[in-house]
Amino acid sequence: MELRIFTEPQQGADYDTLLAVARATEELGYDAFFRSDHYLRMGGVDGLPGPTDAWITLAGLARETSRIRLGTLMTAATFRLPGVLAIQVAQVDAMSGGRIELGLGAGWFAAEHTAYGIPFPAARFPRFEEQLAVVTGLWETPPGETFTFEGTYYRLTDSPALPKPVQRRVPVIIGGTGKERTPRLAARYADEFNVPFASAEDSAAQFARVRRAAEEAGRKGDDLVYSNALVACVGRDEAEIARRAAAIGREVPELRRNGLAGSPDEVVDRIGRYLEAGSSRIYLQILDLPDLDHLELIANQVRPQLP
């Protein structure tokens, strides 16, 4: 089971804070540092110090780290034109020496679009599907050839399809709980499928849908990595667990039901349920970013117990 660190900077974090977490992620032996792609705080009013852009942040971190994978859960398809996104991700991949992964979603948070003047179209899923076709199509076009795409929402004519990522293929992550369209898109485009904030039982059912869709599309179900994103709140004793829950505005019983909360042994047991459900990678949602001792505790007392 791989453990990755997943941050939500829109809740209030500047670049220096994210850099400190990314460096701790690398030093403590985690597999990757990921961040959300949002421009507005969810809950509360100020969101100080304000949003940071996901791909500008990852470009900086690409030059400040050397080993960990870097990526998004999830980049909103509403934020960037697909041709521009393909260029940005390929460039950051080069800056990192080939350590980038792209989580891409349809976009859902209407308020952040209104707040920053970003169009929020009604038909987002069809645009998302075309974005996947364009981004992957540009990357897969052989050097010296051009890429043309005629869609309902995006049209590209004789694109040189440059630059190319350093990696032969930048891993594409698709996620969600949709029962039909989402598994179909994952089967066609994804290297990894992520189920966010769901039970082990619901995750197993969704993984099964994606596996079936992959097989129907002519792929093996095991061609994809299956993963979960879950909030983490781990403590050495009940007082420390309660302190960490209070710091993120959550209740301990709720976190125990819906996340990875409790003692290290409790959390190992709960992760085991997701392993049985078919997950091989957990994104630990870390909400109190200055609490680097939290990352150290999980690295030292949870991770060594995992298969």
Rank of each mutant, 00 (worst) to 15 (best):
V231E: 07
I298H: 11
E215M: 02
E254G: 13
R256A: 02
E296S: 11
L73C: 13
G71I: 14
T136Y: 08
I248P: 08
Y283G: 09
F125S: 09
R80K: 11
G47S: 10
M74A: 12
A161W: 12
E130W: 10
R41E: 04
R243I: 04
W139Q: 02
V134I: 13
D291A: 14
R219Q: 11
T78A: 09
G71A: 13
A239P: 01
R80P: 13
R273T: 09
L260H: 12
L284A: 14
G176D: 01
R243Y: 02
P165Y: 06
F193S: 00
L224N: 01
Q10F: 01
A62F: 02
V135P: 08
I282F: 11
M42C: 15
R63M: 13
F197K: 04
R219H: 12
R243V: 00
K220C: 15
P165E: 15
F34V: 14
E216A: 09
I271D: 05
A186N: 03
P307I: 09
R169G: 05
A205W: 01
I118R: 04
S96V: 15
S227Y: 05
F149S: 01
A106V: 01
L306F: 12
A76K: 06
L3Q: 13
G151L: 07
E238R: 09
R281G: 07
R67F: 00
S263F: 04
E240H: 03
T136I: 07
V172L: 11
Y116A: 03
E215S: 01
D222I: 06
E130C: 05
P171L: 01
P121C: 08
A22Y: 08
D16H: 00
D31M: 05
A115D: 11
R250E: 03
P196M: 08
P160F: 06
Y154V: 02
R236C: 02
H38G: 03
V166H: 10
R184I: 04
E26R: 13
F125K: 13
Q305S: 05
I68M: 06
W139H: 03
L292M: 10
Y154W: 08
G60M: 10
R127S: 12
A246F: 08
E129S: 07
V134K: 09
S203A: 12
T146F: 15
L289R: 03
A77E: 15
D16A: 01
G235R: 08
R270C: 05
A111F: 04
A111E: 15
D269L: 11
G44Y: 15
S36I: 15
E140R: 11
E276A: 11
L61V: 14
E201W: 02
R273M: 06
E2T: 12
N258G: 12
T17M: 15
E140L: 11
A122W: 14
G44E: 08
D223Y: 00
V302E: 08
P307W: 00
L18E: 14
S203K: 05
E180W: 04
T182K: 01
Q285R: 08
R35Y: 09
K179G: 00
R41V: 13
Q301F: 01
T148Y: 05
A161H: 09
A110Q: 14
G103N: 10
L40Y: 06
R211P: 03
E215Q: 03
V252N: 14
I118D: 12
G105V: 02
P121M: 15
S66W: 00
E266W: 11
T146V: 13
L255K: 13
G178R: 03
G151D: 10
E276F: 00
L104W: 02
E101S: 14
T157A: 07
